[in-house]
Structures are given as C-alpha cells and as structure tokens.
Design a protein around this nucleic acid. Sequence first.
RNA 1: GGACGGGUGGGUGAGUGGCUAAAACCAGCAGACUGUAAAUCUGCCGCUCCUUGCGGGCUACGGAGGUUCGAAUCCUCCCCCGUCCA
Length: 378
Amino acid sequence: MSFAFEIEKTDPTPARRGRLRTPHGTIATPVFMPVGTAAAVKGLTQEALEELGASLILANTYHLYLRPGHELIRKLGGLHHFMSWRGAILTDSGGYQVFSLSGLRKVTEDGVRFRSHLDGSEHLLTPEKAAEVQLALGSDIAMVLDECIATPAPRELAEAAVKRTTEWAGRARTHFLEYGKRNGELAQWQFAIVQGATFPDLRRQSARQLLELDFPGYAVGGLAVGEPHAVTCEIAGEVTSLLPQDRPRYLMGVGRPEQIADYVALGIDMMDCVLPTRAARHACLYTSEGRVLIKNARYAQDQRPIDAQCACSVCRRYSRAYLRHLFAAGEITAAILATHHNVHFYLDIMRQIREAIGFGNLAKFSSAMHARYAEGPA
RNA sequence: GGACGGGUGGGUGAGUGGCUAAAACCAGCAGACUGUAAAUCUGCCGCUCCUUGCGGGCUACGGAGGUUCGAAUCCUCCCCCGUCCA
C-alpha cells in the first residue's frame, strides 16, 4: 500500500502532527496546498515550488477537463508527468464551481450541467464523470463531486445540498473503486466532502452519512464562503469532532494567515487557499507584522525587505521600493516575486505550526498572529 | 506674408447653446480578495464650506471682449501650435 496516514504527535488541542504517505512523496501535516487550478500555480514554476518546499498542490477537475482535456493528459502520461511535478497532487472535483459559476450551471439529480466559461459549450459533470476525470489525471487524492452553496443559506437549500452530496458521494465511491480496480491496484485516494452550511445538525448528519461510505479521508466543504470566522471555526470543529482520528481531515478553501492555526487547533490536517497567490498578484503581501499593501505610496522609498523576519529568496534580495515599482510599472515580475514570498509565508506558517504542536504553543502562535493582523501593516 | 487645421481638467481625448465640474481611457490615491471565469474588481480623483447632502459657494475648456435668460460650444480681435503655399 503506497498510501498511509500516520499521526506522530498530538496536542492539548485536537491538533495533530502527522505524515501522509503518497506515491509522490511523504507529506508532513498539517499541510498547506498552493492552488494550481489549471495545472499551474499562478506566478510560480515547478522549480520555484520545489525551492519553497511545497509537497502537495491542488489542481482542478473542471478546468483541466475543459482544457486541455483529461484524455489528453492521460495520453501524455498523467498530470504529474504533464506538468513535471514530482510532488503530490490533490484534485478538486468541480464542486466549488457549482458555487462560483452559479450563473453558468444547473444542478440536477444526475449532476451539474455547466456552460463552459471558456467557450459557452455545455457539459454535464456527474459524480461518476468527476471520478473518471480525476482517475485519468492520476492525481494522488481525488475529491468527490459535492454541492457547495453560499452561506448564509436557507435551511431547505442546505438540506437539499447535503442529501445530494451524500448521494453523489455514494455513486462517486462505487464508480471510483470499480473503475480504478479495472486498471490494477488503485493508485489514488478519494476523499468525501461534508456539507451542511452553518447548521450543526446538518453537518453532523452529513458527516455520519459519509462515514458509512468509508472514505480514506474527509473534507469539510462549503465554509469560508461568507460567514464570520467564528462560525467557520464552530462548524469545522463540530465536523472534525465526528471524524475518525486515523484519517486525514481537509478544510477546503481556507484561509487568512492568522486563521490557519485556528483550523489546525480544531484537528484539521490539510488546507488550500487561493489567497496567497491571488493577493500577491493584487499587491497584498503577508508578513510576520501583518499585511503590506505594497502599492501604497509609503513604500516608494522603503529599502527594507518585504519582511525582515522572512528567509525567502525574495526577501533576501529585493526591497519594498523595488516591488512597489514593479507593481506600478505593471511588470509581470511583480506578481512572480510577490507570489513567491506569499507562498513561502504560508508554507512557513505551517512549518511553525507543526513545530508548535505537542509543545502547547499553538494557541499562543494563533493569538500572536491575530494580534499582528488586527494591527495592520508595519 | 498667405491658406487651412488646432488650442478642453496631471496626460491622451470626447463634447459643437442648457441634462457639463465637463464622457472615456491613462496616470495618481485608497480599498477588496478564503476548494481561482480574478495580472481582477471597487471607491476617490479642481478648490473650499458646513448641519457630509443625489448640500452650498468659488474657479475652470489659450486670452480679452461680445451675443444670449443661459456659452467649452456662436461672433470679434489677439496670442500660441501644426501642415502646406510664397
């Protein structure tokens, strides 16, 4: 078995430090996954990701199915080979696009009918299809197709999304296992996704139903989509308390730098978020002192590095003044350097969190981050 | 010397009698961004006053006069700039 999840150390909080073994390397958890939707982490080459120490990245079923097409990627040796990424890959199912492309899709019992955001063509993404696409891509971890809804949501809508997500998870699980076994040993893991909006009882119901299907890992979806951070924590904690200790838990799509330790303290092992990469492209840099909006005039003559505490190659070499200039000039290098720094910052937060687990320092780390980010930039 | 064309807010540049403090874009200033339709989007961008309101006052479309209830827009003269002819 090339997959395994082992817990190395626990904490006074529900936090755990562990290892996730995959055919593409062993991942130290808790782990942050940079988002590379279309088989590219915007602004970073695979060499840069290696330098940064990324062990697991996220790619997207919906986007790669539309372009360049999963069959093409299969033909070219799978996603790892196609994009020349030696580390592990988790593929999202397209469930988030049910939410983000709400104007371009229709959810039915069968699946989701999308109108392509690229050319307007129509596509039906079913739980089975999403599983097949991910098997073709050959990611290490595949996600089931789920129905992600915006919060706050009316209860009836949340109930329907839970029901649908459970049904789809069952279909996806069966199809994934049968389809996978046909090609010899299954070289991928598949995770289920708990839904239920901000209703604790629906979340519990969703978790229980999915646990019966016996997935190797479980995700908490549909959070950080509009509700306050305290609610996100409350719901995520509610769900993790029901999940098996020995399986990885993945909180999807989070979070801000100062929130990450909070999620870890709830027992979360995996997270992904576009924030470090997107904010970087938009000139928002994360530092140990808080956010730096590098386009601000105040940095025009600032010769200091982005973050004096940061060991990344950008902070060792370039000044705030130069970064600001690159953004003002619209140079593509601005996005590249900023992304490099932000991703380093996120991965470094996770390194510090892994260190803190077991020493009882997690809460201290978390409150320090909240304090710095409340105060604003240096 | 002559003939045309043109001078608009930091820039480019719409506007050819009232709905114009004056389009749009750029620059500038500030903000947002959480399983990426995002190198995107939003707000402000003449000065000033206050009871901050789809509020008041002032200044403004090269300059000076004029026509008109009303002018960036029409008329006269002047000053600049461009092209062409001598």
